[in-house]
């Protein structure tokens, strides 16, 4: 494999090379001279051309990629929510489960794929399994935090008004915790999309395929194109889950500034968004967003 890399270096010694082949001639020539602005412009033209020419294939890789993530979520979210709910009944169990899920999170993805290889073989199973394991910490913790973070007075009032334990869980705790759980799932999904790309080292398919292909054939344009597709997939999924989270928050009467998608969904559902007044929509003290966490 290092041999490939050597070849790649040779190929790319003149970075303008690929641009000169496909881009407008003038741009290509300027890029070949090495003027950075033109290199970037040339690259953008190239990437668009790549998209146009490999549309069907890219869509297929994107579909595979999304399915890898969805397969993991279908198992991981119910599992994580169940565990997160169970550990609210036992503090010691909570510490142990959260600690284990945390340990799981620190295992490098490449290492975890390798560790799952002997029992699950190559292809998508070890990758789906790894994704399930990686989803546990955000989902378990947010479920736990969401359920235990519910206003104690509301729970006490519910008890005093004659709600059974199960009614309190179903009517007060779960609805109040849902947005927090959702934001955990959202954090997890963004992570999963990225990890699934590395899954191609064990042959999982998905958008890792064109990235590695680009690497092997020293095709920078393909790497960039696939990366852009991956970023778009991440942003789309993140946005979609964000909408779900916002709908839950609005239903709970939280004051947030709904984004366009949320307004559209609520518009279709016939809800009146008029009484919603503005505040930062990403502010959420109980969840830990991407690493910006004390």
């Amino acid at each position: 494999m290092p041999a490939n890399a050597v070849a790649l270096v040779g190929e790319l010694a003149a970075i303008g090379g690929p641009a000169a082949i496909g881009g407008p001639a003038v741009l290509g020539e300027l890029a070949a001279v090495g003027e950075p602005a033109f290199v970037v412009l040339g690259m953008i033209t190239e990437v668009f051309r790549y998209f146009a020419e490999n549309q069907t294939q890219l869509l297929e890789y994107t579909r595979q990629h999304a399915i890898l993530v969805l397969r993991a979520l279908v198992v991981a979210v119910p599992l994580g929510v169940t565990l997160g709910t169970l550990i609210t009944y036992n503090d010691k169990l909570a510490t142990v489960v959260l600690w284990l899920a945390g340990i799981m999170m620190t295992i490098p993805s490449v290492a975890l794929f390798a560790l799952l290889l002997p029992s699950l073989g190559t292809g998508s199973p070890p990758v789906v399994m790894a994704l399930i394991l990686y989803t546990q910490l955000p989902v378990i913790r947010n479920t736990y935090v969401g359920l235990t973070g519910v206003d104690e007075a509301a729970v006490e009032a519910g008890e005093g008004l004659g709600m059974t334990k199960f009614q309190r869980l179903r009517k007060i705790q779960i609805p109040m915790a849902l947005p927090v759980v959702m934001s955990g799932v959202r954090n997890a999904v963004v992570l999963l999309v990225g990890i699934a790309a590395i899954g191609e080292i064990v042959g999982s398919g998905g958008l890792g395929v064109p990235i590695f292909e680009g690497y092997r054939s020293s095709n920078t344009v393909e790497i960039v194109g696939a990366t852009v597709a991956l970023a778009l997939l991440t942003l789309t999924i993140d946005y979609a889950f964000g909408v779900v989270e916002q709908v839950f928050r609005l239903r709970n009467g939280e004051e947030i500034q709904p984004n366009l998608g949320t307004r559209a969904v609520r518009g279709l559902a016939g809800a009146a968004p008029s009484r919603v007044s503005g505040r930062d929509d990403d502010a959420d003290a109980t969840t830990t967003t991407t690493s910006a966490k004390p």
Binding site: V9, I211, Y215, A226, L230
Partner: peptide, 22 residues
């Protein structure tokens, strides 16, 4: 920073190749 987060490490490493060599 947030945009950089959506780009997988794999791509960053591959894309560093032409810039800094092997």
């Amino acid at each position: 920073g947030n945009t950089a987060q959506t780009i997988p490490t794999l791509a960053i490493i591959f894309l560093m190749l032409p810039v800094t060599g092997i």
